[in-house]
């Protein structure tokens, strides 16, 4: 079924020269090895050098190449082209939505990164030097892994209907990071973190549409993380010393009802 010519339809836009975005079709040869990214690379090298997109690692770990493919956000580097062709052998590619377009498939992710920094994504460890590691159980690690595997590609952010209209919203990517830090027994500022995220620009703004969870190319569940944060802020206000036990009872997070708290 491979080895045929197919159509990649790309939304083009250069704000320096174009009044508005327009669609352009390119024909590419499909082989068994063609990914959507390799098709874009081929178009750029053989047909139109000005086609602009981001990419780097080629195996879904760097997070550079999230785009909107057939109206859904995904990474294009590990995406076999054949998988996303419609019955007319055609696929549409657009930049991640809800953000200004820098050029073609490159979105301006400034607000995305600003919100990431806003939640203080770094762990704040206790003072002092340590001779050995802090002991954590495999189960604790498993709970954190759900958030740690986030590659900050922005697929969730650009699928969130709140982000579409409100760039003050912290967004699923940053809330997932905050969730991970609040859950981490090594962190020293969980209360401050909840103050940052448990408000109407944060966890309480979430409408639980779950687009973020659906969009995540890593199979993570930001919606559930946001619900857990909302719960924590709503029920306890300030969390205290028993925080560890209470948080552990939240692991695995599978049992957390998604529509528990919030607005």
């Amino acid at each position: 079924m491979t080895n045929r010519t197919v159509t990649v339809s790309i939304k083009r836009y250069n704000p320096e020269t174009d009044k508005k975005p327009y669609w352009q079709d390119f024909q590419v040869e499909l082989t068994a090895e063609t990914t959507l990214l390799s098709a874009l690379e081929d178009i750029k090298s053989d047909q139109d050098g000005s086609l602009t997109f981001r990419r780097s690692c080629r195996h879904a770990i760097c997070g550079s190449c999230a785009m909107m493919v057939n109206r859904a956000n995904m990474l294009v580097c590990d995406l076999p082209l054949e998988k996303v062709l419609d019955k007319n052998d055609r696929v549409t590619v657009e930049p991640l939505p809800y953000q200004p377009v820098i050029r073609d498939l490159v979105a301006d992710q400034s607000s995305f990164w600003k919100q990431y920094e806003r939640v203080k994504p770094w762990l704040v460890p206790p003072e002092g030097e340590h001779q050995r590691e802090f002991r954590m159980t495999p189960e604790e690690v498993k709970a954190l892994e759900h958030a740690e595997m986030c590659i900050m590609c922005g697929a969730c952010y650009s699928s969130c209907p709140i982000i579409a209209g409100n760039k003050e919203y912290i967004g699923p990517h940053a809330l997932l990071k905050a969730f991970m830090r609040v859950l981490d027994p090594r962190d020293t500022i969980p209360e401050e973190r909840l103050d940052i995220v448990c408000n109407t620009e944060g966890a309480y703004r979430c409408h639980k549409v779950l687009n973020c969870t659906q969009a995540c190319p890593k199979g993570l569940d930001p919606a559930k993380a946001i619900a857990v944060l909302a719960n924590l802020g709503f029920r306890t206000g300030k969390i205290s010393q028993e925080r560890m036990e209470r948080l552990r009872s939240l692991i695995p997070a599978d049992e957390i009802p998604v529509k528990a708290a919030g607005d």
């Binding site: 770094w122 762990l123 460890p125 340590h130 001779q131 050995r132 590691e133 802090f134 002991r135 954590m136 159980t137 495999p138 604790e140 690690v141 954190l144 892994e145 740690e148 830090r181 981490d184 090594r186 962190d187």
Partner: peptide, 20 residues
């Protein structure tokens, strides 16, 4: 440096007893 990473928040896989 591995312990420093760990103390800064790096999520390593663990043994049953909690070590890296």
């Amino acid at each position: 440096i591995i312990y420093e990473y760990e103390r800064m928040g790096c999520v390593f896989s663990r043994l049953e007893d909690g070590r890296i």
